[in-house]
Each structure stands twice: as structure tokens, then as C-alpha cells.
Design a protein around this nucleic acid. Structure first.
Length: 501
RNA sequence: GGGCCGGUAGCUCAGUAGGUAGAGCAUGUGCCUUUUAAGCACAGGGUCGCGGGUUCGAGCCCCGCCCGGCUCACCA
């Protein structure tokens, strides 16, 4: 008999014993007086003398590290990521509760009623007077000292990761705080939150390959959205002048430490501003988010200390000159010269060449939070041209720790120009560029009703969360990152067999 | 998709030169009424990722496959 069979059998037998003692193996409502973090906050600083049997509490949580010593014992109880010790003495809880206590397995969920005191070694503890059994664990918990280390298990069984590795919980709490902070700041500036379709008949707003799904009743294929952009701008046309959405995008492309097929994006649109306005706004947003998430605008990361208190700004051309490494550093005139650009890249157009050179030379060096602005028109079908330089558009991206975390532009609101841009993209598509933008005639129609001048921006929440939680992989900030299916688990068969007996 | 690394008990990991598969934690039994990685004694637990091959003999060598990590390419 394998250990797992044996363990399950033991645990099922134990359920019977627990029920024989008159407890429910899977309990019901338990009225606690404090959460464990509340107790630690309220009484953590109290001395033994200040704690009297009158400091009566009821707590609940998962049992960890029980230590039995004959007719008494200790255990830690964990709730919301924090632990409080309990002391269970036979004389204090009585025969029945003490038998229950000795039956506990690591991971069982328990309610404890008693008073707070300090042990001989000074640890704040609950002197138990009454126990309530709340839920049974049938499987054994990860090792108490090393936690759960196997990366694959951590991602597949995130609940175990959360139980065994307290810092994981902190990452996701911080992630939630980041999102809350962004919402708060946007709301404070009069933005309203909306939800736009995730299933779209046409996909757009970014360059990426989509996932395809099917609606049976309508018998149509739909795309999981690669971006909400075009819908959000329709709303700006409709008079929702400050609008945002925080939600998932889906891109059918490679996986890496910086890419998950579904990822969370904030997109916001503000009428009557432009990309310059958004640069200032972005600086405020990011500084506040860093402060809320980490307590400081200066954030430690693998790549060194990042200062979100100030965003450096370079045009793409300036950046190529500024960050050039080694021989042959170009001048600003060089990077404006199509011939020079085409000599330094295999791309077909000067704009694509500049982007190519930028990505090769500059991108990996953008460790400090930095805004790069003024992009070639070729790579930006939805942005407005610079009036004095129509080969470029009013667009910027925000980089930090060598990653792109934001993308913003003055929105193109001229429907004729938008039509021409889409047609340019269609031509690229016909030349085999699968990621080129589709023609979206309804979007053109919306613009034809007149969209106010507008600035729009997208911020990658996962990458921002990576930076602000010190995570090296995007999978560490996504609770359930996409993995290949794991194959047979074989627990159900076992449980079925044991159920018959 | 390419390259590199990994998969051994429920968990964390050892495994010499190819020679009967190990430790700690966890589990079971016993002792123990302020311990805290509790302690002490004894016990149970393994398709060594899967499938082939080489060999008298494979956890170890060879081939194929599966799963994961890192990395490169593409992308945000």
C-alpha cells in the first residue's frame, strides 16, 4: 500500500473518530472575536502582566506544527498569513477536547476559545478552554521548514503555495493594492470604470495573434480580445470622456518570464488631453502606486534601485543617441536620416529601422523608469501624427527594469486618416504580416461621428506588479499562470475505493 | 521552436565507480502538563517522470517521449 493510500485511509478513519467524539469533521459557522492578525496587532506588545484570563478570545485557522507533550501541547494556528500559538492543556479543556487535540493533523482547521497569555519563553498564546473542529485535511501539507519549493507544484496548486510560503501571499496582497491604488487615483480624477467585450467579432487595438472561440447559437467565431482600446474610444465618442478598464487581454503568442497568454491591462482614455498630458499623469500615477505598494517611490529590484519618483524622458531618436554603446555613436541628424537608419537595420522603412535599432540598442538599458516618446508612424496605426513631422506619431512608452510597462498616445481621431492607416495595415497583412491590424469599419463609423481630441494609455498590471513585488517571473504575480495540463491525479479513484469500504 | 538545467518517499533533498534505494520533515505506536524546526524509542511508506536499448546487473550509460525552470527568437 502506498503512503498516499495509507494516509487517506488513516485520515478517513480519523474523521470517523472525530465524529464519534461528537464533532463535525466539516464544521459550520464559527464566530471568532478577532482574526489572528488583529490579535497580533492588538496584543503583540502587551506584557505577561497586562494579559489576564479576562482577555478572552475566539480564533480560527489552520493548525500548523502541533507539539504534543503528554497531557498538554502547543500548536500554531495560521489565519490570513499570520500565526498565533495555542496552548492546550487537558485540565483546561477537558477530556473530550483534549482527545480531539491529540487527533489533529497538520492542516486541519480549528476554532479555539480561551484567554491570551505569554508562555515561559514569552510567546503570545491562547490558553485554550474550548476547541471546535472546523475542517479536516485529507492530504499532508508541505514540509514545515522548507515550505513548498517545487515550482511546478507552486503554480499548479497555488493554494498550497499560499499556505506554505507566506511571502507569496504578500505578493498577491501587493498586487491587489496596486490595482486598488490605480482605481482610486483614476476615480479621484473623474474616470469611470467600464467593462467592454472580451469576445469580439473583430480584434484590434494592438498587434498580436488572437485566440479564437465559437458561439454555438449565433454560429460565429469570436476572438478573445487582444486589447479593449477600440471599444473604449467608442465610449469616448459617446461622451464618456474619462473612462478606464482594468481587465484581461489574451494574446496567442509565446510564453516567457514576461509573457502570459492572458494578462491584465489598465487602459484609460481622457478627452481633451494629449500624450504630453498623459506623461505628467503617468508620472503621478506610478509614483503613487509605488508608494502604496512598497512604502516608497524607490523600489529595489534585481536590476538595482528604481526611482518612480521621477520618470526620465527621451524621444526615441534621442534615446538611440544617448544609450548608444561602443563605436560609431550616431548624431541626432543621423537618426533622423533615412539612409543612415536603413544602413543600420535590415528593415524596409526608415521608421521600422529606427524602432529596430531602438529595440536592439536601448531597450535593455531602460532600467530606471523612463518615458520614450515620438514613435514612427509605421508601428502605430491608431496614434495621431506629429503636426511638424508626420512620419512620427505622438506616442510614448514607459519602461522600467528593462521591460515595457506602459504605452500611450494622442489618439487618432480623424476618420479619413484612420481609414488610410487601416488600409496600410491591410496591405501589410496581405504581405503576410499576421499581426497587422484588421479593418474595423464600425470603429471608423464611430470616429466619423466625431471623437474629441483624446489621450489614451495602457499599463501592464502584471509587469508593474512584478517590479513592485520584486518578482522575476510574470508567473509569480499571476495566481494561476497557464501551464500544460498535468495528467492524471488519481485521487478520485482512491477516494471512491475507500468510500466503498 | 532552439540551447542549457531539472523530475528519486506526501514535502525538502542525498545517492560515490553501473552492484540489494537513503536522510530530515511528515505518517503510525509508545513516553512526556510552558513547547516552538519540541524531544526520545520503534515501525510503515518508493512504477527512481514514461517507454525502449546497452549490460550478468541501470536511479546512474544510450535513444525517444512527457512535464517544468532558465535562456534565445516573437510579443506587452
Amino acid at each position: 500500500m502506498s503512503l498516499e493510500d495509507e494516509l487517506l485511509k488513516q485520515r478517513l478513519e480519523r474523521i470517523r473518530e472525530i465524529e464519534e467524539l461528537g464533532y463535525r469533521a466539516y464544521g459550520r459557522r464559527y464566530e471568532f472575536t478577532h482574526t489572528i492578525p488583529e490579535i497580533l496587532a492588538a496584543y503583540g506588545a502587551k506584557t505577561a502582566e497586562e494579559l489576564t484570563p479576562e482577555t478572552h478570545v475566539r480564533i480560527a485557522g489552520r493548525v500548523l506544527t502541533p507539539r504534543y507533550m503528554g497531557k498538554a501541547g502547543f500548536a500554531h494556528v495560521q489565519q490570513n498569513g499570520e500565526r498565533l500559538q495555542i496552548y492546550v492543556k487537558k485540565d483546561a479543556v477537558g477530556e473530550r477536547d483534549f482527545r480531539l487535540f491529540k487527533m489533529l493533523d497538520i492542516g486541519d482547521i480549528l476554532g479555539v476559545e480561551g484567554y491570551l497569555f505569554r508562555t515561559r519563553t514569552g510567546e503570545l498564546s491562547v490558553h485554550a478552554e474550548k476547541l471546535e473542529f472546523l475542517s479536516k485535511t485529507l492530504l499532508s501539507m508541505p514540509e514545515k521548514w522548507h515550505g513548498l519549493a517545487d515550482v511546478e507544484t507552486r503554480y499548479r496548486q497555488r493554494y498550497l503555495d499560499l499556505i506554505a510560503n507566506p511571502e507569496v501571499r504578500k505578493v498577491f496582497v501587493t498586487r491587489a493594492r496596486i490595482i486598488a491604488c490605480l482605481r482610486r487615483q483614476l476615480e479621484a480624477r473623474g474616470f469611470i470604470e467600464v467593462e467592454t467585450p472580451m469576445m469580439q467579432p473583430l480584434y484590434g487595438g494592438a498587434t498580436a495573434r488572437p485566440f479564437i472561440t465559437h458561439h454555438n447559437t449565433l454560429d460565429i467565431d469570436l476572438y478573445l480580445r487582444i486589447a479593449p482600446e477600440l471599444y473604449l474610444k467608442r465610449l469616448v465618442v459617446g461622451g464618456l470622456e474619462r473612462v478606464y478598464e482594468i481587465n484581461r487581454n489574451f494574446r496567442n503568442e509565446g510564453l516567457s518570464t514576461q509573457h502570459n497568454p492572458e494578462f491584465t491591462m489598465l487602459e484609460f482614455y481622457q478627452a481633451y488631453t494629449d500624450y504630453r498630458g498623459l506623461m505628467d499623469f503617468s508620472a503621478e500615477l506610478l509614483a503613487q502606486v509605488a508608494l502604496d505598494a512598497t512604502g516608497s517611490t524607490e523600489v529595489e529590484y534585481d536590476t538595482g534601485k528604481l526611482d518612480f519618483g521621477r520618470l526620465e524622458r527621451y524621444s526615441m531618436r534621442e534615446a538611440v543617441v544617448h544609450f548608444w554603446e561602443g563605436e560609431g555613436c550616431p548624431t541626432l541628424d543621423n537618426v533622423c536620416d533615412p539612409e543612415w537608419l536603413l544602413r543600420h537595420s535590415g528593415k524596409a522603412t526608415a521608421g521600422e529601422a529606427l524602432t529596430d535599432i531602438f529595440e536592439r540598442v536601448v531597450e535593455h538599458q531602460l532600467i530606471q523608469p523612463t518615458i520614450i516618446f515620438d514613435y514612427p508612424v509605421e508601428t502605430s496605426p491608431l496614434s495621431k501624427n506629429k503636426p511638424e513631422d508626420p512620419a512620427f506619431v505622438e506616442r510614448f512608452e514607459i519602461y522600467a527594469a528593462g521591460m515595457e510597462i506602459g504605452n500611450a498616445y494622442t489618439e487618432l481621431n480623424d476618420p479619413q486618416e484612420q481609414r488610410r492607416r487601416f488600409e496600410m495595415q491591410l496591405a501589410m497583412r496581405e504581405r503576410g504580416d499576421e499581426e497587422a491590424h484588421q479593418m474595423d469599419e464600425d470603429y471608423i463609423r464611430a470616429l466619423a461621428y466625431g471623437m474629441p481630441p483624446t489621450g489614451g494609455e495602457g499599463i501592464g498590471i502584471d509587469r508593474l506588479a512584478m517590479i513592485l513585488t520584486g518578482s522575476r517571473s510574470i508567473r509569480d504575480v499571476i495566481l494561476f499562470p497557464l501551464l500544460r495540463p498535468e495528467g492524471p491525479i488519481d485521487l478520485v479513484r482512491l477516494m471512491r475505493e475507500l468510500d466503498r469500504k
